[in-house]
Simulated scan of single mutants.
Amino acid sequence: MKRYNNSHFTLRIGIVLSILFVGMLVLFIENNVVDVVFSPKKELPIYSVDRDDKKIAISFDAAWGNEFTGDILDTLDKYNIKSTFFLVGFWVDKYPEDVKEIVSRGHEIGNHSTNHPDMTKLSKEQMTSELTTTEEKIFKLTSTKPILFRPPFGAYNDSVIQVARELGYFPIQWDIDSLDWKELGVEPVIDRVVKNVRSGSIVLFHNNAKYIKEYLPIVIERVQAKGFEIVPISELIYRDNFEMDNTGRQIYLK
């Protein structure tokens, strides 16, 4: 009878265990690959729009104060530009006449929540309340239901985007942050916007930024000098028959 010593036995066991380990590793990798391939695609808001007609949009978030709102509207009138204002519910409550004036001047209003929270930390019921409460406030003053929603702080996850879409909104982000809220001066804002603008861009400004009276006319003139037409966001985006790439750029399906 053939006998095995301890070293041979240990070697055999080691080989068997190695084969089992490799087999399990392969299965694990394959399963993960399958999960990656078939996992749901991350939900994204619209950061920009794939267009070749040199149209862009500038937008203003309004949450804190209204000191410069009239100046913004006058500047937009001067250059015959229509824009988009994203309003927070408590701003609507505090400045109802400004809300009416924005609409009377031909600009559109977007929903920017009711209390300016980090929406990703809310339940779906709370998210819904944030949108519908401000929607009702805006409708009461303007007889118009907003169709654009911008999450406060630009914070979102799949649930935020899904809830917004279920309520009939197009979630909107931006591809150019002017960083006007940092109050670094006039030139930094101008340089940042003008150097980075491209067809389909959405630019973020704030209605109460410190230097907006100075930089807004210059930005408009320089952007127009580059051949861009400024339109409201609702005219820039595609309403249907589109897909989103992984950067949040909206692409029309021809």
Rank of each mutant, 00 (worst) to 15 (best):
S104Y: 07
T114S: 07
E135R: 10
D118W: 05
S104L: 10
D118H: 09
T144E: 12
P117E: 03
K140G: 08
D118P: 02
T114D: 07
Q126Y: 05
I147W: 03
K124G: 03
S129R: 11
S143L: 11
L148A: 00
I102M: 15
I102G: 14
H112G: 01
F139L: 13
L122D: 15
K100C: 09
S129F: 10
V103T: 12
K145D: 05
V103W: 12
K140C: 08
E130A: 02
H107G: 09
E125H: 00
P117V: 06
S113I: 13
E136V: 12
S143H: 15
E108M: 14
T132E: 13
S113M: 09
E136N: 13
K140F: 10
T142A: 04
R150S: 03
L131Q: 00
K121G: 04
E135A: 07
L148S: 00
K100E: 08
L131F: 02
H116Q: 10
T144S: 10
E125W: 01
F139H: 11
D118T: 04
N111Y: 04
E125R: 00
P117T: 03
R150A: 02
T132S: 06
K121T: 10
E108F: 11
H107Y: 14
L141H: 01
E135D: 14
F139N: 11
T128E: 06
T133Y: 01
E125M: 00
T134I: 13
K124H: 04
I138D: 08
T120W: 13
S113R: 04
L141K: 01
D118N: 08
T128W: 07
M119T: 10
K121F: 14
H107K: 13
E130M: 02
T114Q: 08
H112C: 01
K140S: 15
I138P: 13
K140I: 09
Q126N: 05
G110M: 01
K137V: 12
T144A: 10
E101D: 13
R105W: 09
Q126R: 03
F139I: 09
F149G: 01
K121C: 04
H116I: 08
E125A: 00
K145N: 07
E136K: 15
S104G: 06
K145I: 11
Q126M: 08
T114I: 11
G110V: 00
S123I: 07
L122W: 10
K124S: 08
K100F: 07
L141Y: 02
D118R: 04
S129V: 09
I138H: 10
E108N: 12
I109P: 02
E136W: 06
R105M: 07
I138Q: 08
K121I: 03
T133Q: 00
S113C: 06
S143V: 06
K140R: 15
G110D: 01
P146I: 10
I147V: 14
F149K: 03
G106N: 09
L148V: 00
E108Y: 12
E125N: 00
T128H: 07
S104Q: 11
K140N: 15
I102P: 11
G110Q: 00
K100Y: 06
K137T: 12
P117H: 05
K137L: 11
P146F: 08
H112T: 03
K140M: 09
T114N: 06
E108R: 12
S123D: 08
V103F: 14
F139C: 05
I147K: 12
H107M: 14
K145L: 10
